[in-house]
Design a protein around this nucleic acid. Sequence first.
RNA 1: GCGGAAAUAGCUCAGCUGGUAGAGCAUCAGUUUCCCAAACUGAAGGCCGCGGGUUCGAAUCCCGUUUUCCGCUCCA
Length: 563
Amino acid sequence: MSKSTDELFKNVISHAKEYGFVFPSSEIYDGLSAVYDYGQFGAELKNNIKTYWWKAMVQMHDNIVGIDSAIFMHPKIWKASGHVDGFSDPMIDNKDSKKRYRADQLLEDKIASLIKEAVDEAKNKTNQKYNTRIELEEQIDNEKSTVNLFNEIVSGIDINAGEHRYINTPGGKSEAFNWFTHLILESDYFKKAIEANTKLNEHLKNEDLVGLKDLIIALNIKCPVSGTANWTDVRQFNLMFSTQMGAVADDADVVYLRPETAQGIFVNYLNVQKSGRMKIPFGIAQIGKAFRNEVIARQFIIRMREFEQMEMQYFVRPGTQKEWFNQWKEARLKWHLALGTDAAKYRYHEHVKLAHYADAAYDIEFEFPFGFKEVEGIHSRTDFDLSQHEKFSGKKMQYFDPEVDPETGKPYGNYVPYVIETSIGLDRMFLLTMINAYEEEDLSTEEKQDSRTVLHLHPCLAPVKAAIFPLTKKDGLPEKAREIMDKLKIDFNIQYEEKDAIGKRYRRQDAIGTPFCITVDHQTLEDNTVTIRHRDSMQQERVPADQLDKIIGDLVSWRNLLK
RNA sequence: GCGGAAAUAGCUCAGCUGGUAGAGCAUCAGUUUCCCAAACUGAAGGCCGCGGGUUCGAAUCCCGUUUUCCGCUCCA
């Protein structure tokens, strides 16, 4: 990060606070870490971003509907979704290097390296004994594949039955290969690894943090950075917030604050499908808050404990997920670019390591001053979520598809739909919009140094659509200006200002991104025309006052973004 | 959570080797002004982050603490 971009980010943050966009939460009580409040203009801007999304997703698609599900949900939902297990990681710190690790990953790595020792040893011995060259294929001769090999051996899969996957011997796999696997299974390294693996799984299952630490000590695992085994205790990091439901403390059940809005959609999939008579493919959209106890939550509103998501889950026929995935990937980037953002600031990032539920995943990333960061994710979630809920709830999540498959000539029939998810972080989108709009413009001439800070917000998103100024606050100009404002404020968010020099008022509106300033002068009293000044060009034009609603209406119309 | 830095008016900061708290902008009340900031007069605004210690005396020195920033660690 260069000095100047670093500076830019800081300036945007202080601008956001100074002009009523974003305030630190509970500031008068020293603040609450990683929680922020949206101020008077921030709330407007945020609402406008939501409206843009909702219109683009729901209003513009006749097969997508929106819901608003509760933040509290049945605790079993989070078991089904995998959040209860996946969202609480055992962590351990090395006291010398100050590095933090996931305890389970440290152990898995150690187990993998033990297996590798066993395999290498067996390989060498086999090569000696049979005077042959057994080579592990390249693709499995690394740690990850070693773990796979290990898992297959452990789970009793007969590797002899497989193809030439593990061993590449010129003379076939028969005797040398058997000897090789025999050596592995007999190896002390391997036995140690199996034992460690068994214990690891046991401790994880029982949430035995002490056991995990003991195991790390017993295996003499060292920090890769400091090289010491000077570890802290293993601690549990719960990434879900919990609270109690029920007024009487004794009877209260633990419920979680949802860590994502998606599950609210999945558990209502049947309700929406039936009550709306939805036909596949169809989508369910939702905007709502979600909560995550991040280990480190920083960098302003990019990572908050309480945040808002705009998600759409698109239910499709199995086998068609790839096409839909690609289609939504394109469509979502278009939504971003329609705002006029420089396309070079966006990029796709493909997930190489996929989540347990996904068969494809792309992020849309934006170049923030501190680097490219995910703003939106498009994930192909397969039928994982609905199948899980089918399993945990016992309710059938199937859809009967009466359409005829042209290949078989029969209807597609019953299936659990596949899901394409588009999920955008509203707060990140907000920050992106602010950063992208923010400019410190140098307006200096030879005679005079001058500058202005301006938010080049898209007129559709601007918190205030227009400001009305009487040129001076006498001669009946304020009255005339208020008269014009009263007509406009029915349709638009309007501000009235009469204090300070006209130039200063223009600059104040620039700072909050108001696209248009309307000035009432003496000529207005004569012929009912006003000047309208455009934020970005600073150019003025004189127009009839009674056409303002149409002129402004056209300029801030959603048509400009959605067409 | 660890390490480093910082915290003084709404904002940006000054305040020396301890001696009663300062500026500019912003705000408020007026004056001036027919189109792009910083014109004139006046007013208000501070437990110098919080707690302790040293001292006759602490914004200033010491210790602790909180918050923020910058790194590291985590993030389907």
